[in-house]
Design a protein around this nucleic acid. Structure first.
Length: 797
DNA sequence: GTAGGGTTAG
């Protein structure tokens, strides 16, 4: 048995040794283990602060197991040991263990610090309600909260606050407790006011006024104070309030400036962000990775590629803060900068040069490839990603859909859900887009039903995707009802709805909707004009189209792009106004490119304007000799007037030049001139005869117990535009009509512009069953094989 | 308290 003096000497020695251990230092753990082992060997039972020191070192070096072991060995751990363990468990997110120790501690052993540990644990683990509940329990048991208590409990309150009373009550409690002069408490209180202001249930302006009052009364303000209030204004969309506050700040606190710049970026005010950045540089406020990432993002989204590149060069040249975080986050934003301006390879270069990548880097480069339509590479990135998150899946799903891989997109969406992800709005929007490229009304409706069930159906991007899905699946009415029931709409929604009407031949309704959009104060963008011009073109509204085109720049300052000029040419050509079309080409500010000549050729084909058509085709051969579409259009043009020798000549030309694909007309399989126009959506002199066949066909379908997919065409057209309406539907009408004219047993290949939509699918199934024909339909790289009323799909080559 | 990666419309 040692005597008391020996024990004291030992204890002092151990304490001195453990004092040398710095818990953050990795080697401290082994030193502590050695000291601890020595204690055990020499039969020394650690107590009091020695135990607590060991516990502290163990958990801070991520060795909670040893801490727990020691804790269980000592006979009656004191409040400090218990507090240490509660903190340790909370930091690991293991609230149950922390709570167990907390509950197992008798009241007479507890103190304020003990309570603080548990409250902080709840707060850090985003359990605001438990933190507040414990705070009240603590006061009921007559423990006196201190400034630490309030700091924790206020940050817990900030997580859940949603009414003004909660702010007032807590504010009162702070004042009463005498902690109302402590900076950390006041900052946390300020944060509560600011968070409460963002709640939809309160008046943000009055809350922000209270926050401002508190701010003005604070005895001192640090970086956190300024940043909290500036962020508060930003979150409540009061950019001017935020800026006015920043302008009153005399200290050069970089974080507050960063918050302001990021506020501008998030509100789309990219120029303001850049101006502020310049001022920041001018005044010598310290720039860090937060500054640069926000500013580069402003360049990426605001059309400032040149400036972004200059920043990139500046960063490389000056080797600014080449620390890990700086390099990582700035490179991530640079990846996005480059691909947004079409420089995917530049983005890839940055990506591969990065010594360390994280999930953001991977998602950024994945988006780049998806956006460039380089899906094979995107798939390979997706497959080799070390980790994925919700965003990864979303990017990939919508990317597949956007690039025409509807089925894969939908499959991936299902896989994602099987993997346990709860899809966000964007993922749903992507899946809905997948349905619309697939033309799968059934899947689209299912998703719609699920969204209603989940209460997700009021989302803007989902609504927008749904409008276009219903339209592209042929159900304009459903598109309209989505549009009308959406709680919020934006210009995308209007564009989608205008397009829906235009696509279905309701040109007049489309232009009326456009006018209504203007009345409601929504500004049209370049896509609105593309949509409106298409609608006019498909419905023969030539003068209206001309007027809208002119108003583009005159009234809205939008410079027409080549695509707008191409629409005008389309508009005039469909109406047979070739001199107007030529005038458009002559009036163009830059050299007309392929889309222009393509539109002209397509127009010439409709009306059999051979000379002009050949001229356009020659231009196209010059510009893109390997583009099979030109050969297709040209041979269609000849086929339309029965010049079969010329058709053969074009085919030979194509073969001689080594162009791979076959012309997109089916006359080789079936010697049937009619079929040629059936595969695209142009006005054709013979189109009215389709109408008669349609009526026959729908009668036959009804007799066989099917609902004809053409019903809305027959009943829903505007009578004065009947033939145009039909023309826009000919993609679908083609199916029925073409097959009726075919000899039994023929194999049909429909090569071009045919979108296999849901109704179309049904019509094919019907035809293959009732008329007993085998049908192969090619849709891009996919084929759909219909036989005996069933369909199998696959890749064509 | 500040940052970087996404969506829908033609």
């Amino acid at each position: 048995m040692r005597n008391a003096i020996d024990v004291r000497v030992l204890a002092n020695r151990y304490a001195a040794q453990l004092q040398l251990c710095c818990p953050q230092n990795p080697s401290s753990f082994s030193l502590a283990r050695t000291v601890h082992a020595h204690m055990i060997v020499s039969g020394f039972k650690p107590r009091g602060h020695l135990v607590n020191r060991l516990l502290d070192i163990y958990w801070k070096s991520s060795n909670l197991v040893y801490a727990r072991q020691l804790f269980d060995e000592i006979p009656n751990p004191d409040a400090v040991a218990r507090t240490t363990l509660i903190t340790a468990y909370s930091n690991l997110g293991n609230l149950n263990m922390a709570r167990e120790i907390f509950n197992g501690t008798p009241l007479n052993m507890r103190d304020t610090i003990f309570y603080n540990a548990m409250i902080t644990g709840f707060s850090h683990n985003v359990d605001g309600h438990s933190a507040i509940g414990l705070f009240h329990a603590m006061r009921r048991s007559n423990f006196r909260p201190d400034d630490f208590t309030f700091t924790s409990v206020l940050s817990a309150l900030a997580l859940i606050v949603d009414n003004e009373q909660q702010c007032g009550q807590m504010h009162g409690a702070v004042v009463k407790s005498g902690t109302g002069l402590v900076s950390s408490v006041l900052n946390a209180l300020l944060s509560v006011y600011v968070k409460c202001a963002s709640s939809p249930l309160v008046s943000s302006s009055s809350l922000m006024a209270s926050a401002r009052k508190l701010f003005d009364e604070m005895p001192q303000r640090d970086e956190l104070t300024w940043t909290t209030l500036i962020t508060g204004y930003v979150r409540n969309d009061d950019l001017n309030g935020a800026r006015e506050l920043l302008d009153t700040m005399t200290e050069k606190l970089g974080v507050a400036w960063n918050a302001m710049i990021s506020g501008y970026v998030h509100h789309g005010l990219f120029e303001d962000a850049l101006t502020l950045f310049r001022k920041m540089r001018f005044l010598g406020v310290e720039l860090d990775e937060f500054t640069y990432t926000s500013v580069i993002s402003a360049c990426a989204n605001g059309g400032f590629f040149q400036l972004g590149k200059e920043l990139h060069a500046y960063i490389l040249k000056n080797e600014l803060n080449p620390n890990h975080d700086f390099l990582l986050s700035v490179s991530n934003s640079l990846i996005t900068l480059y691909w947004k301006y079409g420089k995917v390879d530049g983005a890839r270069h940055i990506f591969y040069e990065m010594p360390v990548k994280d999930i953001v880097s991977w998602n950024a480069i994945l988006s780049g490839y998806v956006n460039a339509g380089r899906m094979e590479e995107a798939k390979s990135f997706f497959a080799q990603m070390p980790e994925k998150n919700l965003l990864t899946w979303t990017v990939m799903i919508s990317g597949l859909a956007q690039n025409g891989f509807g089925e894969e997109g939908l499959n991936l969406f299902n896989r994602m859900r099987l993997d346990g992800y709860e899809p966000c709005d964007y993922a749903f929007a992507g899946a809905i887009t997948a349905c619309s490229v697939l033309g799968s009304l059934e899947n689209g409706r299912q998703l719609h039903a699920q969204l209603i069930h989940l209460g997700h159906d009021s989302s803007l991007s989902i609504g927008n995707a749904m409008i276009s899905m219903y339209a592209r699946c042929g159900v304009v009415e459903a598109a309209r009802s989505v549009f009308l029931t959406m709680p919020f709409v934006d210009s995308v929604s209007w564009n989608a709805m205008i397009a829906a009407l235009g696509q279905h031949g309701h040109g007049v309704k489309a232009t009326e909707l456009y006018e209504q959009m203007l009345k409601e104060g929504i500004l049209p963008d370049r896509i609105t004009f593309l949509t409106v011009l298409s609608a006019c073109s498909h419905s023969g509204l030539v003068e209206e189209g001309r007027r809208y085109f002119n108003s583009m720049f005159e009234n809205y300052g939008i410079t027409p792009g080549e695509d707008h000029y191409a629409r005008m040419i389309d508009l005039f050509c469909r109406a047979g106004k070739f001199s107007d079309a030529k005038n458009v080409i002559d009036s163009m500010p830059c050299k007309p490119g392929a889309p222009i000549w393509e539109a002209l050729l397509a127009g010439c084909r409709i009306h059999g304007n051979m000379d002009l058509g050949v001229e356009a085709a020659e231009k196209l051969f010059e510009l893109m000799p390997q583009h099979d579409g030109t050969y297709v259009l040209l041979s269609n043009m000849y086929a339309n007037v029965g010049r079969w020798n010329d058709v053969a000549r074009v085919r030979k030309l194509m073969r001689d030049r080594g162009v791979k694909k076959e012309p997109a007309c089916s006359w080789t399989e079936v010697e049937n001139k009619v079929h040629v126009f059936l595969v695209d959506d142009t006005v054709h002199p013979e189109v009215l005869s389709v109408y008669n066949y349609l009526e026959e066909l729908s009668l036959e379908m009804k007799k066989a117990g099917y609902v004809p997919d053409t019903k809305y065409v027959l009943h829903d057209m505007e009578s004065e535009h009947k033939e145009y309406a039909l023309a826009t539907h000919s993609e679908r009408l083609a199916v029925g009509f073409g097959l009726m004219k075919l000899p039994p047993g023929a194999t049909v290949r429909v090569f071009k512009n045919l979108r296999i939509c849901g109704d179309c699918h049904n019509a094919f199934k019907f035809m293959s069953k009732v008329v007993r024909r085998e049908i192969v339909v090619r849709d891009g790289k996919r084929f759909h094989h219909f036989k005996n009323g069933e369909c199998s799909c696959g890749n064509y080559w």
